[in-house]
Amino acid sequence: MTPHPATCIAFEGHRRISAGPMSDVALAVREVLARGEQAPVLIFDDVTSRPVEFDLRGTPEEILARLASEAPGEQPAPSADVREDDTPRRGRPKLGVVAREVTLLPRHWDWLNGQSGGASVALRKLVDAARLAGEDKDRKRAAQEAVYRFMTAIAGNLPDYEDATRALYADDRARFDGIVSTWPEDVRNHTLRLAEGALVTHP
């Protein structure tokens, strides 16, 4: 079973029903469904925009009890580093440095050895810079996917939806904002919030 997200958001058609902890959203959705509303009700993970489903059978107390039982348990705290006599270790923690062979051309070694701190420090800085750059790209791609999921599910019939999708992946913030600004208020506001991490604001 896919675990429920920490927070989610629910829409009845283009109107936001509720947003926040899953317990609050589930009960709000239950009330809407009990009224027999005709507009489709959709629930999304508030961060990824993946669809969320709740078992809304029974009383509010029964619903909350099910949600509590399905919530992921707390992770145990990391154990202390101890000696065989169970005495906690003191001093600096181990850095986890691993020595391995690296094969480079002479010009590469010449450049590395000329850097401040020597070859090892320079290599670590280069690896960290590349890793952070990759993480930034991954975060942006995940944010774009979240916007796209939400737009596809709820805004597919809204004006200029396809143009908004193209602007999203073209990183055209001005065009994207201009299109989305004409959409229903709740859909517009959530779409723009999701897009904060997906689009670069150009000067």
Results as ranks from 00 to 15, higher is better:
residue 145 E to P: 09
residue 145 E to Y: 12
residue 145 E to D: 15
residue 146 A to C: 11
residue 147 V to H: 01
residue 147 V to A: 03
residue 148 Y to E: 12
residue 148 Y to G: 05
residue 148 Y to Q: 13
residue 149 R to D: 05
residue 149 R to V: 07
residue 150 F to H: 02
residue 150 F to I: 10
residue 150 F to L: 12
residue 150 F to D: 05
residue 150 F to C: 08
residue 151 M to A: 15
residue 151 M to I: 09
residue 151 M to Q: 11
residue 152 T to Y: 09
residue 152 T to D: 14
residue 152 T to S: 11
residue 152 T to G: 08
residue 152 T to A: 14
residue 153 A to G: 13
residue 153 A to S: 14
residue 153 A to R: 11
residue 153 A to N: 07
residue 154 I to S: 06
residue 155 A to F: 02
residue 155 A to N: 08
residue 155 A to G: 15
residue 156 G to I: 07
residue 156 G to L: 06
residue 158 L to P: 06
residue 160 D to F: 08
residue 160 D to N: 12
residue 160 D to T: 08
residue 161 Y to W: 14
residue 162 E to A: 11
residue 162 E to R: 08
residue 163 D to P: 04
residue 163 D to S: 12
residue 163 D to N: 14
residue 164 A to N: 07
residue 165 T to I: 15
residue 165 T to A: 09
residue 165 T to G: 01
residue 165 T to Y: 07
residue 166 R to P: 02
residue 166 R to V: 08
residue 167 A to W: 05
residue 167 A to P: 04
residue 167 A to V: 03
residue 168 L to R: 01
residue 168 L to H: 00
residue 168 L to A: 05
residue 169 Y to M: 04
residue 169 Y to V: 07
residue 169 Y to P: 10
residue 170 A to W: 03
residue 170 A to H: 01
residue 170 A to Y: 00
residue 171 D to K: 00
residue 171 D to I: 00
residue 171 D to A: 08
residue 172 D to S: 07
residue 172 D to I: 03
residue 172 D to Y: 01
residue 173 R to C: 09
residue 174 A to R: 07
residue 175 R to S: 05
residue 175 R to E: 08
residue 175 R to N: 06
residue 176 F to V: 01
residue 176 F to W: 02
residue 176 F to G: 03
residue 177 D to K: 05
residue 177 D to H: 09
residue 178 G to W: 01
residue 178 G to T: 02
residue 178 G to D: 01
residue 178 G to A: 03
residue 179 I to S: 07
residue 179 I to Q: 01
residue 179 I to G: 00
residue 179 I to P: 01
residue 179 I to Y: 02
residue 180 V to F: 05
residue 180 V to P: 05
residue 181 S to G: 08
residue 181 S to F: 10
residue 181 S to L: 00
residue 182 T to Q: 14
residue 182 T to G: 12
residue 184 P to N: 13
residue 184 P to E: 15
residue 184 P to A: 14
residue 184 P to F: 12
residue 185 E to M: 10
residue 185 E to Q: 14
residue 187 V to N: 06
residue 187 V to P: 04
residue 187 V to I: 15
residue 187 V to M: 10
residue 188 R to A: 11
residue 188 R to D: 08
residue 189 N to L: 14
residue 189 N to W: 09
residue 190 H to W: 15
residue 190 H to Y: 15
residue 190 H to E: 15
residue 191 T to I: 04
residue 191 T to N: 11
residue 191 T to G: 11
residue 191 T to H: 08
residue 192 L to K: 13
residue 193 R to A: 15
residue 193 R to E: 13
residue 193 R to H: 13
